[in-house]
Design a protein around this nucleic acid. Structure first.
Length: 291
DNA sequence: AGTTGTCAAGCTAGT
DNA sequence: ACTAGCTTGACAACT
């Protein structure tokens, strides 16, 4: 099992998610920001290697406005060498990598324009992973979304849109069970029609399920990952106290985490800790795992 | 230097 | 009607 945390490290003193306002867009600003983000990404990865945190989620703003019409600059070409270098670092250290596009990405939206922009945005995420030279086990996770009061139709729309996506996207796209609309069971239905792998979110499963315990649910989700997809990816979090259902806790609860591990650690999968204090909790988790 | 309102994009549940 | 929350922060203008 590899353990990781998403997008940003609070210790290294920089962020790989710098961006800027659309109003101040310029090619120069874009190039400058991408450079700073790549530099920080490298620094973050070095921290992770040192601490054996080998599952990492790259933040979407790595290349700001990449899928926006304002961006006409060929950043892919300009930064090709640096992406390759970071990709080699990922590979050398056997990292598991994923990305998670924003909530605006809804490929089964009713408005054609939203669908189009969503696909563009996913394509950008693919470009990043492709430029890094990562294989099909590097995934892009999205929620099914697009309910608009009729989940059944939304699922059918998702299936139809997914079928027509280019292979470059299909090979990386995975769906995540969410805490409001799509349970594991719903995702399994979509899997049956599309063979899209399911990222299993333990916390969301606690919020929305059909009575399966977490171990048996995890096993069901694991079966949706083929060999070329790599091991199942899972998200882990716990409820933040005195906050609305679904908000993520500030830090890991050691007792709960040990209990969690004892349930599932004999099963081989990679675990992303979606906890607000990021690497701080990830370090606690890896220590518990390695003990 | 520190604080605060706002930022490309959507949706849902809760108030 | 409005906002918090989502994986979530960071920018930029103002004090």
């Amino acid at each position: 099992m590899k353990i990781g945390y998403p997008c940003i490290n609070r210790t290294v003193g920089c962020t790989p998610n710098r961006t800027f306002r659309l109003a101040s867009y310029s090619k120069e600003r874009l190039v400058e920001t991408i450079q700073l983000n790549l530099d920080c990404l490298k620094k973050t990865l070095e921290f992770n290697v040192k601490n054996n945190l080998l599952f990492f989620r790259i933040g979407s703003p790595l290349v700001p406005f990449a899928s926006h019409p304002v961006c006409k600059f060929n950043w892919q070409k300009k930064f090709k060498g640096q992406f390759k270098e970071i990709g080699n670092y990922f590979k050398k250290n056997k990292f598991r990598v994923n990305m998670h596009p924003d909530q605006f990405v809804i490929i089964n939206a009713l408005k054609e324009d939203i669908v189009k922009r969503s696909v563009r945005e996913i394509k950008y995420h693919c470009d990043v992973l492709d430029l890094l030279g990562l294989d099909e086990s590097a995934k892009i996770q999205i929620h099914v979304g697009g309910v608009y009061g009729d989940k059944k139709s939304a699922m059918e729309r998702f299936i139809e849109v997914y079928k027509k996506l280019p292979f470059a996207i299909k090979k990386r796209l995975v769906i995540e069970n969410d805490h409001l609309s799509y349970s594991l069971k719903d995702c399994l239905y979509i899997f049956k029609k599309t063979e899209i792998p399911i990222i299993f979110d333990f916390f969301h499963h606690e919020c929305l399920n059909n009575g399966e315990n977490r171990r048996s649910a995890l096993i069901k989700a694991m079966k949706t990952w083929k060999k070329k997809d790599g091991k199942l990816m899972a998200d882990y979090s716990i409820q933040k106290k005195k906050a609305i259902k679904g908000s993520h806790a500030e830090s890991i609860d050691i007792r709960k985490f040990k209990n969690f591990l004892s349930d599932v650690k004999d099963l081989d999968f990679d675990l992303m800790l979606e906890i607000k204090d990021k690497e701080k909790s990830a370090l606690k988790a890896i220590n518990i795992l390695e003990k």
